[in-house]
Design a binder for these strands. Structure first.
Lengths: 193, 193
DNA sequence: ACAGTAACCGGAGAACCGCCCCATTTAGCA
DNA sequence: TGCTAAATGGGGCGGTTCTCCGGTTACTGT
């Protein structure tokens, strides 16, 4: 769905294969999670593995494209929450959305967020991460201005924490646990004094 | 260090290889993390890969043995905390220990905790997990009796949460972040009302 | 001391994986 | 229509986990 307009408009056959790969990846990732076999994706798309690797040099770049739309939807929800709810509630509600999304994506968000930093190959298409960070940052700012958050909470940390919860729970396939853990993190383990 | 006393006492050569493998695994896991190549471990131990797989049918069973000692030390610290500090503080302090331990172990605790549940092969040697759960459970009970914890906090959830933080941060190699995230989880994201 | 036997070993091989080279095909322009 | 640069994908390489099985070796009972 989302193509990258290079300098030249991309040849018709290239475009066709590109889209086939994305479609296949969508299916396979949904079933096997983000660590699915790229070979299998190529096979199902009916292209050689070399073609897949040419279009998507890294696994991450493929994930990026496959989930661009969903991430966009998620960010749209952030805006909705911001309009509908009080700043503090909006952030919390959206964190819940994010958690559900990540859990449903079988390690995807995890993979997207995880090596955002440690990928030395900077400046690779960080689209999804950037969008999520932006959405989170805005909600967080609002909540902070309204005084609904503990001071010193960083956007980066918040995202990593939610991501951590998804990472740890997705293997259990246990959505309820993911929600419990988020509640725990939101209100804290310790009794407020 | 820790051998499993089967029905028969294990032949001398078997014992020797077993220990060589554990020693090699210790080194290799420390360098490459919990997903290190088993082949490499066998190579370094000077045994065939079949021998490794006979002694340790799963990667997890190897990790189990390699980190038994460290986990024991960690549980000992739990007892120390329980004696020295107020129940609530003891738990929090120990969670910090656990977090540091997990971070230092390069994905080990993660791997140990992660598939504790989803491993269908029940009744495989769950030693480490059991020890940690027991230690955590005791501290948690104490803290709960003293009223220092929010009600409804489960041992399982607590461990998973700390584990999640380690999982998410270890790739950054950023201990400071791990600590910040734990603080966040302990006191909560939201302002107490 | 010396079998005999059961336990143990490890090389080789099957079935995967990601990644890349490069001879071949093909789309689009003139 | 014919030329050229772009795109393709089979097949190879080096890696993984895990298993089979013929050969070796440590223990045991006489």
């Amino acid at each position: 769905m989302t193509e990258s307009p290079r300098q030249r408009p991309m040849r018709a056959d290239a475009r066709r294969n590109y889209e086939r790969i994305v479609a296949a990846a969508q299916e396979v990732f949904a079933v096997d999670g983000a660590d699915a076999s790229l070979e299998e994706i190529a096979r199902r798309a009916g292209v050689g593995s070399a073609t897949l690797h040419r279009h998507f040099p890294t696994r991450r770049s493929l994930l990026e494209v496959v989930f661009h739309d969903r991430v966009e939807a998620l960010c749209a929800r952030a805006r909705e929450h911001a309009e509908r709810s009080a700043p503090g509630d909006a952030l919390i509600a959206w964190l819940r959305d994010l958690n559900i999304y990540a859990a449903a994506s079988r390690g995807l968000a995890s993979s997207l967020l995880r090596d955002g930093r440690d990928a030395d190959l900077l400046q690779q298409n960080d689209d999804c991460r950037a969008m999520i960070t932006a959405a989170a940052g805005e909600l967080l700012h609002g909540a902070q201005r309204a005084g609904s958050l503990r001071p010193g909470v960083q956007t980066e940390d918040l995202l990593t924490l939610v991501n951590a919860i998804s990472l740890a729970t997705e293997h259990h396939g246990d959505d309820a646990q993911a929600n419990r853990l988020l509640d725990l993190a939101v209100d804290g383990i310790r009794m407020p004094r």
